[in-house]
Design a protein around this nucleic acid. Sequence first.
DNA 1: CGTCTATTTGAATGTACTCAAAAGCGGTGG
DNA 2: CCACCGCTTTTGAGTACATTCAAATAGACG
Lengths: 194, 194
Amino acid sequence: MTNEELLLNNLARHISLEQTEIDFFFSLLTQKTLKKKAFLLRQGEVCKTENFILSGCIRMYTIDDSGQEHIVMFGVEGWWTSDLYSFFTGTPSEYYIDALEDAVLLQITKERLELLYEKVPKFERFFRILLQNAFIAQQRRINQNLSYTAEQRYLDFIQKYPQLEQRISQKQVAAYLGFTPVFLSMLRKKLSQS
Amino acid sequence: MTNEELLLNNLARHISLEQTEIDFFFSLLTQKTLKKKAFLLRQGEVCKTENFILSGCIRMYTIDDSGQEHIVMFGVEGWWTSDLYSFFTGTPSEYYIDALEDAVLLQITKERLELLYEKVPKFERFFRILLQNAFIAQQRRINQNLSYTAEQRYLDFIQKYPQLEQRISQKQVAAYLGFTPVFLSMLRKKLSQS
DNA sequence: CGTCTATTTGAATGTACTCAAAAGCGGTGG
DNA sequence: CCACCGCTTTTGAGTACATTCAAATAGACG
């Protein structure tokens, strides 16, 4: 699948577009490559773009007072990523976004997105649906964090994102699930023995 | 503030409407009253409406295998509530929604909402913005659950929602924050002593 | 007033964390 | 291509935070 196809499939899942509308949309995007460990956004900066991931793997996270990282989302090819709050309000972000693997992104700025909504209102629908899905996924995650033990959350994670678990380090998985890498190591040992 | 004003303010914060558009919107809504402890939605049922809360207090929650309740959201006057996943996909909900206080709601069905989007596309924008704000709030909550101790989360909660803390029982607060009522009681004692 | 539920208190337990040290692994430069 | 450096993972011991269970007290509601 080419880069363009990846995004076209993403669009086609929710709205149907004329070729001219597709062309217009693509004309608003700019491509950006991101080396492993490079930052797309740092805490305190304003998030200027929404980003469609063509390849690679990124994470969005905070660093707490004691220096620990906490991952609020991962992104891989086919996903959109951004700090929406900073993006829409123009206020400094609380989050870091960086690459866990070399990545290629398509970016759209707020101004261009507003222009897109104006010219092709169907995109308002498209981004509402994306947001809706992300919202629902987050609600599930909140509920799981409340209801499940660390072990249950880990088992659920590897079942739900088997590909991700292969690609990223245990340290990152732990920072996403809300426990320490040391604890994850013990958990895996225990699970492999039983 | 009348019921109508509450909703009008809510709309006006994000979109501007003609009187005819407002009238059309209101014509699509039906009012529902909900006695304390009455269910708006039970696990396994399909969520048929989005609900704007005119008065009262509701909660959306799950019950886990060991019978414990976990609250994913509260709602008070001026808030929208619904299980969006069930609402949009038509699949049975995993959640319960019931009233912590007698409540009055304005409801809109999916069919009518789609009609509204079609006739007045500005509402697509309105609901996208609502969703965006809810998404951002959830992301914060996920991050806090990952980063903060139970005590920090409680202090943050009472600071952020001082009105809510007055209205609802400690048991409900505990079910929202992710610990037991017993622990919350000990926490409060400790905090009042220091 | 009586019943039902929520809150408090205490003791014992368990889950997950910190600290520390060793082992493993991957990337980089000589 | 190998050796080294830095980061991740493993392992173990001791600790802290939060839970469970149980019982007593307090509050809310009919």
